[in-house]
Simulated assay, not measured.
Amino acid sequence: MNTVHTIKELRSIVAQQRKKGQRIVFVPTMGNLHEGHIALVTEGLSHGDFVITSIFVNPLQFGANEDLDAYPRTLEQDQQKLADAGNHLVFAPSANEIYPQGMESQSKVIVPELTELHCGASRPGHFTGVSTVVTMLFNMIQPDVAIFGEKDYQQLAVIRKMVKDLFMPIEIIGLPTARDTDGLAKSSRNGYLSPEERAIAPRLYEIINLTAEKIRQGQRDFTQLTREAESLLKEHHFKPDYFNIADSSTLELADKTTQSITILAAAFLGGTRLIDNLTI
């Protein structure tokens, strides 16, 4: 497995693989890889011949008071995990390589509507940063397939819409959320949790499941269900960011006529922001 740090090197290797008739699969990450990321790579191997994983902590998607500087960078460990998984190429650029003119003058890709609620409401500009850097990476690599995790449900929906709207010839595949045995969604940010917080963290998914079961049983007062869920989160020492019952396709808040429902939630546990979701 090779690792490159420049767009020139990346494109040279991609061109070589194209000449061989290889089908290119791309897995974008911010590094600090866990089993969920590795599952994306493993899935990618079944969809193509040459898997490229990027490791780039994208400053454009972090807000002014978010954890950009503290975000863990573990390139050597990540490289070993990827090599063991059968990944073929790592692209690990610097911020200067991606934004040579700085971020203020960077052209941006904006996906409307889907980005206005949920994480988009509480993290202004976040999804513009995501859609912009993913578009740039797609243009550098021009993959046939790209693999994303469903833990970031809204992000996946944004990417799907962007690819469709901009006629990008890329197949987008979503992989179910990887979880620890107690149900907690695997996330690089789980490493920020204290042992006491880690013991509490699975309650987020439990409360989502409890709400889902109430909906399956026929309850349709989504405002009341949301209040009950937020109250339970507070009882377990979470600070709710949002707990939304939404239309799975549009991500607009669900009503009594909504056929497919996704519960999306974000909550702080100490200083760590956790997100999770469940589609009914």
Rank of each mutant, 00 (worst) to 15 (best):
R11Q: 15
Q142W: 02
Q16S: 15
V158C: 05
V27D: 03
Q17I: 02
E76N: 07
I141M: 04
C119F: 08
D144I: 03
A199N: 13
I200V: 14
G63P: 02
A70Y: 10
E43N: 11
R23E: 03
S194V: 07
A83N: 06
A178P: 00
P240V: 08
F62K: 07
R23V: 03
T177L: 12
C119T: 11
E97C: 06
I7S: 00
V109G: 02
I24K: 05
K19V: 13
L175Y: 13
F268I: 03
F91H: 06
I110C: 13
G120W: 06
M140Y: 15
E66H: 03
L278G: 00
E228V: 09
L233E: 03
N244C: 14
T74I: 08
K8M: 09
P72I: 01
M136E: 14
N87V: 07
T74H: 02
K151H: 12
V163W: 01
L117K: 15
L45V: 04
G31T: 03
D247F: 11
S12Q: 14
P100M: 00
S194A: 09
R273I: 01
E97L: 04
T177Q: 12
L210T: 15
H126L: 02
K81R: 09
F91N: 00
I13Q: 14
N190M: 00
I207W: 09
I172A: 07
N139H: 12
T181F: 11
R189M: 03
G36E: 11
D84N: 15
L175C: 14
M136S: 14
D221T: 04
L232G: 03
S131I: 09
Y71A: 05
L204Q: 12
M168C: 14
F91L: 07
V163G: 02
Q80W: 04
A266Y: 03
F62W: 03
V14N: 02
V109R: 09
T250F: 09
A157R: 15
T250R: 08
E35A: 13
S12L: 14
A64R: 08
V111W: 07
F238G: 12
G120I: 12
V111G: 11
P72T: 04
E104H: 06
M1K: 08
N2T: 08
T135V: 10
Q17A: 06
R160L: 01
G271H: 13
K19A: 15
L156M: 10
N2A: 12
I207Q: 10
I141Q: 01
A212M: 14
A201C: 09
A254N: 02
T272S: 05
G129F: 05
T177K: 12
Q79Y: 10
Y99V: 06
P176R: 11
F91A: 06
H126K: 05
I159D: 07
E196I: 08
M140P: 00
N244K: 14
G149F: 03
E104T: 04
F50C: 04
V4L: 05
V14T: 03
M103R: 10
P240Y: 07
I38H: 05
A121C: 01
I13P: 04
Q77T: 09
D276Y: 13
D247S: 14
